[in-house]
């Protein structure tokens, strides 16, 4: 009954509408960010990072890096020893990026120079995710190559969970690893990163607006409630009970507008298929 009468007030209805609109706007920004994050990361699908570390250094476990694998560096090509691709023995997959017979010959020549009998292998072009400078080999191939290559370093390739702000991330990673990281970008979504950051500005603006409006509405509700202090006192409400009523009203206003904002945003999301 106390809350019902609170919501009958014109000012409460206005606060409810304003807070709901702010929550809807916040959701829209969050949805927008999430959409662009997904879009940007999808467009970076074929991108990767690569770096070398001394062999005596432990295989690094890095936050924010996925599909990290030790590879054999063969000039500009990497042979992956990744069994997760389920390669059969004697099978070598070549990136479709190099989908021409000359490339196939070039790879065979390079392997032959390393003393590998290429007639034992099937060479195929692959649709796998690494689309540049890669071909894949099975563990057997890797072990042969490992013996052939006399190097004190291990080479790694990997992807990033999140390619937004990848430059800052890679620079931090370089500091952590103490080595230079090469980054091969296969994406045409660079301009969307700016849009994504534009959403952040909106987000901070809305949060600022939310804080200001919260302060204004709390002060106004407190002023309104002060007018009824004597009424509640004469009918036997203690100061504690009165404070509890005011807190319940303010909390309900926030929760109710958050609920309305969430439902409205989800409906908009479904209607406009965001």
């Amino acid at each position: 009954m106390l809350l019902k009468s609170f919501y009958r007030k014109r000012t409460t209805k206005i606060y409810l509408i304003i807070f709901t609109l702010i929550f809807i706007a916040l959701y829209m920004v969050i949805f927008g960010k999430s959409y662009y994050r997904k879009y940007i990361n999808e467009s970076f699908e074929g991108s990767y990072i690569t770096f070398t570390l001394p062999k005596d250094k432990d295989f690094p476990k890095l936050e924010g890096v996925t599909n990290l694998q030790e590879v054999v560096n063969l000039d500009n090509y990497f042979l992956l020893s990744n069994s997760s691709f389920n390669l059969d023995n004697y099978e070598i997959l070549i990136s479709p990026f190099y989908n021409d017979s000359k490339m196939m010959e070039a790879v065979q020549e390079r392997l032959a120079k390393l003393g590998i009998d290429t007639s034992l292998y099937n060479f195929e072009f692959s649709d796998e995710v690494y689309t540049n400078n890669f071909f894949y080999a099975n563990p057997f191939t890797y072990s042969i190559l490992d013996n052939q290559i006399n190097s004190n370093d291990n080479t790694y390739v990997g992807k990033l969970y999140d390619w937004i702000d990848f430059e800052e991330f890679i620079s931090e990673l370089e500091g952590e690893l103490g080595t230079e990281i090469d980054c091969l970008i296969m994406a045409d979504a660079m301009q969307y990163i700016d849009i994504y950051h534009g959403f952040n500005i909106f987000l901070y603006l809305l949060l600022f607006l939310f804080v200001i409006l919260s302060i204004i509405s709390i002060v106004n509700v407190l002023i309104d409630e002060k007018k009824t202090n004597f009424l509640y006192r004469i009918i036997g409400y203690s100061s504690k009970q009165k404070r509890l009523i005011v807190i319940s009203k303010l909390l309900s206003l926030l929760v109710f507008s958050l609920l309305l904002g969430t439902i409205s945003s989800l409906i908009l999301k479904v209607i406009f298929k965001w």
Binding site: M1, S5, T228, L231, I234, I235, G236, S238
Partner: peptide, 26 residues
Amino acid sequence: NDDELSDIRNKEIGFIFQEFYLESEM
């Protein structure tokens, strides 16, 4: 204390004032 006095006011005393003191939205 305030809680005890409030309880007595609530159960034992009824007030009427010239200014009414009614909740306008009730």
